[in-house]
Nucleic acid binder design. Structure first.
Length: 286
DNA sequence: ATGGCATTTAAAAAATGA
């Protein structure tokens, strides 16, 4: 961002001389995504992470709470505003934004299936960026009706993502995609070949989405690194670093150019009463 | 290859997750 800076000098005869200089001041926006696995069970962990990581935007998944049980007061006290789309017992997504500026909700749910009652998509515009927060269906066991639902949900996402691309605005999709993109993204990938997170149909759908013009932000900045965002609760998976990379940031070309950093707050996975996912974030310039 | 754990709902045990 460009600023005009006024500099004043005071000469020896007390007349002052002003000069002006244009300076570039970099403004960064930190956007995070975090599958909390129950927002009320996870509230202390969520608040501690917000305080330490201080994202400007936090997209949350798996609230596992109906709208009326969203802990708005605690979120507000932490300095965040919130949009949320809850559901009893399962699913549920939210977008938190820090400070006084209010995000504009631009979408709730995906078109294409009037029967679908699962709360898995919420979209908002904040600071000139369109942010889609999603919780893509797991799809196991595969094959089966749950896998069919996953694939049809991905098809509906693909349709919506296409309209987002054609809007030509700075846009990102983030959340728990329940997709392991490549063998590099799973501890012992050979165990996942028949799983809904890794099956060819899932990969094909994910590739079709990327081919629209989306960039996997973490992989773009770290082409060869093993990065995980999820470790299951069993067999000390986190301590053994036996994880998966399934939480993603997809950036359109406009935002890809402005991507300056990305990471996983994996230390949060080591906390008491924590989610099986860790928060993931990107930093966007300007 | 399997079972291991955690949450919600609701009142014991089932469903879900990845």
């Amino acid at each position: 961002m460009l600023f005009l800076l006024k500099i004043q000098f005071f000469g020896k005869h007390l007349q002052h001389v002003s000069c002006y200089a244009y300076v570039f001041k970099d403004i960064f926006m930190k956007i995070a995504t975090y599958n909390v696995n129950g927002i009320n069970a996870r509230l202390p962990v969520l608040l501690k992470w917000l305080e330490e990581s201080r994202p400007d935007v936090a997209c949350l998944q798996e609230l596992k709470a109906p709208d009326e049980k969203f802990p708005l007061e605690a979120i507000t006290d932490a300095g965040y505003q919130a949009l949320w789309h809850g559901q009893k017992s399962w699913n549920g997504v939210a977008i938190l934004t820090r400070g006084d500026k209010t995000a504009l909700e631009t979408g709730r749910g995906l078109a294409g299936d009037p029967e679908d009652v699962q709360s898995r998509y919420l979209e908002a515009e904040f600071n000139g960026i369109t942010i889609g927060c999603l919780y893509l269906p797991n799809g196991n066991p595969a094959p089966g009706p749950k896998f069919d639902y996953k694939l049809s949900w991905m098809q509906r996402l693909e349709q919506h993502a296409k309209t987002l691309i054609s809007a030509r605005k700075p846009t990102l999709l983030c959340g728990d995609f329940n997709v392991i993109p490549t063998a590099l993204d799973a501890y012992k990938a050979e165990r996942w070949v028949d799983d809904a997170l890794f099956r060819p149909e899932t990969h094909e759908a994910f590739e079709r989405l990327l081919d629209q013009g989306w960039t996997d932000a973490l992989r773009k900045l770290n082409p060869d690194t093993v990065i995980y965002t999820y470790w299951d609760y069993f067999r000390q998976a986190y301590r053994r670093n036996a994880g998966l990379r399934i939480d993603h940031f997809l950036l359109n070309k406009d935002l890809e150019k402005r991507l300056t950093a990305a990471g996983v707050d994996d230390y949060v996975r080591g906390w008491e009463k924590t989610s099986d996912h860790a928060p993931v974030w990107v930093e966007i310039q300007g």
